[in-house]
Design a protein around this nucleic acid. Sequence first.
DNA 1: ATAATTATGGACAATAGTTATCCATAATTG
DNA 2: CAATTATGGATAACTATTGTCCATAATTAT
Lengths: 167, 167
Amino acid sequence: MKHSDGLEWAIHSCTLLAALPADMALPRRLLAEFFGLPEPYLAKQLQKLSRAGLVETRRGPKGGYALAHKPKDISMLQLVEAIDGSERHFRCSELRRCGPTGMPPRQYPKPCGIARTMWRAEAAWRRELSQTSLADIQQLGLQETPPEQMAKALAWFQSNLPMEGKK
Amino acid sequence: MKHSDGLEWAIHSCTLLAALPADMALPRRLLAEFFGLPEPYLAKQLQKLSRAGLVETRRGPKGGYALAHKPKDISMLQLVEAIDGSERHFRCSELRRCGPTGMPPRQYPKPCGIARTMWRAEAAWRRELSQTSLADIQQLGLQETPPEQMAKALAWFQSNLPMEGKK
DNA sequence: ATAATTATGGACAATAGTTATCCATAATTG
DNA sequence: CAATTATGGATAACTATTGTCCATAATTAT
C-alpha cells in the first residue's frame, strides 16, 4: 500500500513547470536532468499527465511540456489521480456473498458496511487533496527552497536552456 | 495503490469474531470455510492480527482465534495498520536535494511541502478510520445482513462448531 | 525540402510486492 | 499419549511497479 515513485516525480515536475514563463515549454531531458531522474520512465509519468489534460506538450525543437492550466486550477487530487488512477484503494469482493451462507446479489441492496466505511475515509483523503492546488505547493516551495539553491537553479537553467544558452 | 485483499478478509474475520460468545475461540479452518477463503493465507492475516495484539489465540483442541478487546475498543485504523502496516503511503525521496542544484540535507530544516501536503491528507484518512470501531461495523452488519443469511449462518455454525455439533 | 529536435506509444525486461501453499514445530486438551 | 490447533520459515506463482529501448509522428529552423 504505497504510492508510486512516479507520483512524486510528477508533482515535482509540475511544480517546476508552474514556475516557468507562460509561453515556455520544458523538454523532458532537462526535467529529468534537473531532478536526476531516469528520463524514459519520467516520460511515462508525463504522458499520463498529458492524457489527463494537466500538461500540454509540444513536439519538435523548442517543444516540451508546459502546464495546461494555471497552477491554482490544478489540484493535488488531479495530479494523484492522473498518475495513480482514480480507482478506490479498498476493493470490496463481496465476501458476505461467499461461503456456505452467502445469498444471491439481489439480497444486498447496499454496498457492505465495511466497504462504505473504508470509502468514507478515502473520501476524506480526497477532500484534503482537492483543497490544495499546485499554486499552494508552489508557494510552499518558494518559501522553503534555500536561497542558494534558487540561485544555483537559475544559473543551471540559463546555461542549459536550448535558447538562451546559445544566443 | 490498493489495499491488500488480506485486509478485507481480516476485517470480515474480526467482525465475525465480534459476534462470538466472549469465552469462545474460532479455529481458522472454520473461519476460512465460512468465507470461502484459502486457509493457509488467511492464517497469515490472522497472525498479523495476533502480533498486533488485536486477537488472542489459543492452541490445541477448543483453540482458535478470539478478539483480544471489546469490539468498541478496536478501531478500523488498528485493523488496517495491523494488516497493511503503518508506514505512510507517500514516501518523500527528497527530490529537492537531487540533481545538479541540490543542496546538503542541513539546508532543509522541514520536510518538503509536497510531502507535508500528502501526509495531511493521509492524516484525514486515518482520522476517519480511527473514529470507526469494530462495534460500529458490527452494528452495520447486523442491520444489513438478510435475515435468511442470519438463519443459515446460525445453522451452519451449529452443525460445524467442534463442540455443540457433537454434544 | 531537409535536418534536427522532441513527444508518443508499444514492446520488453528487471525488480519488488502480493498472494498462496506447505511443513516441521510447539502448545493445549482430553 | 493422541488429537487438535496456531506459529513461523521456506518457497513458488502471480501481479504490479519500475525501468529501458525503439520506430514513428510532429514541429521548427535552415
